[in-house]
Design a binder for these strands. Structure first.
Lengths: 198, 198
DNA sequence: ATGGGCATGTAACGAGTTACATGATTTT
DNA sequence: AAAATCATGTAACTCGTTACATGCCCAT
C-alpha cells in the first residue's frame, strides 16, 4: 500500500503529501521558524546548490503560491510605506507536520547526478586530446573555486546550524575527492597519449 | 529577437547545434559506429546512470525521432520475418560532425547534483535521530551495491573502450569517497547525540 | 499455454527554464 | 542622476516522467 495519509473529512487544509522535492526544500528552509520572502529563499537556495541544484527564481515563487494554497505556509503582505509588494511567508502547524512527515517517513531517494564532464570524457574517442585536457583543467579550477566558497559558508554555519554545517563538511570532502580524481584522470590521459601512440 | 540561427534556405539538413544533453548522449552512443535500436540504447543508458541520470524509455525513442528529423541519424526498419517493428539507427556524417562539435567546442558545464540524502541531513533538526541514522545506513548499503555493479562493468570495459573505462574508474573512486563521507557523518551524528544532550 | 524478455509507441501531465516586464529602494 | 540591488510576477516553452497499450519471440 502507498498509505495515503489523508486524515481530514472536514474542511481542514488536508495538504496532500506528494510534493516535488523543491517544495520540501522551500518548506524546510521555512521550518527553521523565520519569516522569509521569496527573495530570501532564493539566496538560501543559492547556498544549497553545492548539493542540490538551485531552482529558477520563478519556480520558488510558484512553489510558495502552491504551499500557501495548501495551507502549509501563510503569507503576510507587508504594505510598508505604501509598498504592497513584499510578501513574507511563515510555516504553519500543518506545514511543520507535512515537512516532518517527509523528513521522517519518506523512503530513501538515491542521489541523481548529471555529470557533464564525465559524459564528455566517456565519449573521449571523439575528442581532440588537447581540448579534453583543457576541459578537465577548467573543471579543476571550477572545483577549487567551489571548495573555497563552501569553506566560507561552512565557517559561517557552525554554532547556529549544526546540520547544515555537517552537510558543508560532507560537501567539502566531496570536492576534495573529486579534485583528486580529476587529477588522476589527467595523469592517466597523459600516460595514454604517451604510451600507446593512440 | 531570439536570434534564431537558421542559415538554410535550401533543403540541406542544417542541423542546429542546440540539443539537450540527452540527445548528445544518444548520438554519442551511436558515434561508436554501431547500428543500434532504441532498446539497445536504453540498456547502454542504464550503464551510464552512475554518472548521468538514465532517461525514461519514451524519451530515448523521442530523441531518436528528433535526431532522425535533423538528419543526424538514419533509420532502417528491419521487416525481418514479417516483423516491421524493429528499427535500427546509424549515425550520419552530419551526426558525427554535430557530435564532435559538441564534444570539442561547447563550454564546460559543471555537474548538477540532486543529493536527496544530503538534503534530508541538511534539515536534520526536524528529523527523528534514529530515522536519520537509519536513512544514512540505507544509503551506505545502496552505495556499496552501486560500487559492486560498477566494478563489474569496469572489468568488462577495459580493452575495447578506454574512455568509458576511465569514467568507470573515476566513478569507483567517487563511490569510495562517498562511502567514507557517510561513515564519517554517521560517526559525527553519534558524537552529537552523546556529547551535548541534544 | 504462460510468462518473461524484446521492441516500440502515445497521451496526459508536471516540473522547470528562459525571457520578459515592472517598479521600488539603496548606493555611488 | 545613474546604477545596482531588492522584489515579484507572467507567458511560452521544453524536458522528461508516468501510465498505458500493443504485439512478437522464446523458453519452460
Amino acid at each position: 500500500m502507498s498509505a495515503a495519509p489523508e486524515p481530514a473529512g472536514d474542511g481542514t487544509p488536508t495538504g496532500r503529501c506528494d510534493l516535488p522535492a523543491t517544495a520540501y526544500a522551500v518548506l524546510g528552509l521555512l521550518s527553521f521558524g523565520r519569516e522569509l520572502t521569496g527573495y530570501d529563499l532564493r539566496k538560501w537556495a543559492e547556498h544549497m546548490r553545492f548539493f542540490y541544484w538551485s531552482p529558477a527564481q520563478s519556480q520558488i515563487y510558484a512553489e510558495l503560491r502552491r504551499l500557501k494554497s495548501r495551507g502549509l505556509v501563510t503569507e503576510r503582505g507587508e504594505p510598508q510605506r505604501g509598498r504592497p509588494d513584499k510578501r513574507y511567508y511563515r510555516i504553519t502547524a500543518a506545514g511543520q507536520w507535512a515537512f516532518r512527515h517527509w523528513e521522517n517517513q519518506s523512503e530513501l531517494e538515491p542521489p541523481v547526478i548529471k555529470h557533464s564532464p564525465m559524459l564528455r570524457l566517456f565519449f573521449g574517442h571523439q575528442a581532440d586530446p588537447d581540448r579534453l585536457h583543457e576541459l578537465l583543467a577548467e573543471y579543476l579550477d571550477w572545483l577549487e573555486q567551489q571548495r573555497a566558497e563552501l569553506h566560507q559558508i561552512r565557517a559561517d554555519l557552525l554554532p547556529e546550524f549544526p546540520y547544515p554545517h555537517l552537510v558543508a563538511v560532507w560537501g567539502h570532502a566531496f570536492y576534495d575527492a573529486e579534485l583528486a580524481s580529476v587529477q588522476a584522470v589527467l595523469d592517466e590521459l597523459d600516460r595514454m597519449s604517451a604510451d600507446p601512440p593512440d
